[in-house]
């Protein structure tokens, strides 16, 4: 068990192990997405007040959850890289950034499209929407800072600090709808107490949430493997890989 983690810390072993996991994660992700989409788009009943427009939820909510989850992973990986000088943690952190940014963008855009018919506005500067937009800027900031710094070690450290400082935004996003008056309504699922949503709608939502997590796992490993090859390009095992390719 300990050897597993020790091996995982070695870029060469990570490359190999991740390569084996990716197809399985991808298959599980695809299966759950198909199930979730069918349940959500076809089987689940319409909402009593939002009609069929609420079905945007099956993309919007999992995207929003992912935008927060990935940021936390990125910050924690960054911290581990900073404290333990672990290369792999640095790789996971920077590989996560564009994926997190994608989900944040998706949450904002689908939210906007949903808001127009339901609220009557494409955008409002309430605390929930504004703090989620700031999250997007944080992700983009991490990506920009990393590419601006020549040495990857230093780049990883600088972006880890930025990510860690930005963590304060995560509880702000989540509690914004409770701390301040907002147009965005309060939590339906992520709260203490029973979810205020019909089971036939809740199940596809949760299925999509898991599917999105599996998507992140698949894609972050794909990105991380490329980043590892980049960093280790002078190593013998990479040279051999290139030769046989």
């Amino acid at each position: 068990m300990l050897r597993f983690f020790h091996q995982l810390g070695s870029p060469k072993h990570f490359y190999r192990i991740a390569g084996r996991w990716i197809p399985w994660l991808a298959a599980a992700c695809a299966a759950l997405m198909l199930i979730g989409l069918y349940q959500g788009m076809v089987v689940a009943p319409p909402d009593y007040q939002q009609g069929d427009s609420y079905r945007i939820m099956f993309i919007h909510v999992p995207s929003a959850w992912m935008s927060l989850f990935i940021y936390i992973v990125m910050a924690v990986a960054g911290a581990i890289g900073l404290i333990w000088h672990m290369k792999l943690a640095e790789v996971i952190a920077i590989s996560s950034a564009p994926i997190g940014a994608s989900f944040t963008f998706l949450a904002l855009v689908t939210g906007s499209i949903w808001g127009k018919p339901m609220w009557g506005a494409w955008w409002v500067w309430d605390a929930r929407l504004t703090s989620e937009l700031i999250l997007l800027f944080l992700y983009l900031g991490v990506m920009a800072l990393y590419s601006a710094v020549e040495d990857k070690r230093t780049a990883a450290r600088a972006t880890a600090i930025l990510a860690i400082v930005g963590v304060v935004n995560i509880p702000i996003i989540h509690y914004s709808v409770e701390w301040w008056n907002t147009l965005h309504q309060g939590p339906t699922v992520t709260k203490f107490g029973a979810p205020s949503i019909d089971l036939r709608m809740l199940i596809p939502l949760l299925v999509m949430a898991v599917a999105f997590k599996l998507f992140y796992a698949t894609v972050v490993l794909m990105r991380a493997r490329v980043e590892v090859l980049q960093r280790e390009r002078n190593a013998q095992w990479v040279r051999e890989l290139v030769d046989i390719s």
Partner: peptide
């Protein structure tokens, strides 16, 4: 000059609401 609708966090089918 502008009226926006604010809906709650509850989701349910029409027959349950009824």
């Amino acid at each position: 000059d502008e009226v926006l609708a604010k809906h709650d966090e509850k989701y349910m089918p029409p027959e349950v609401a009824a």
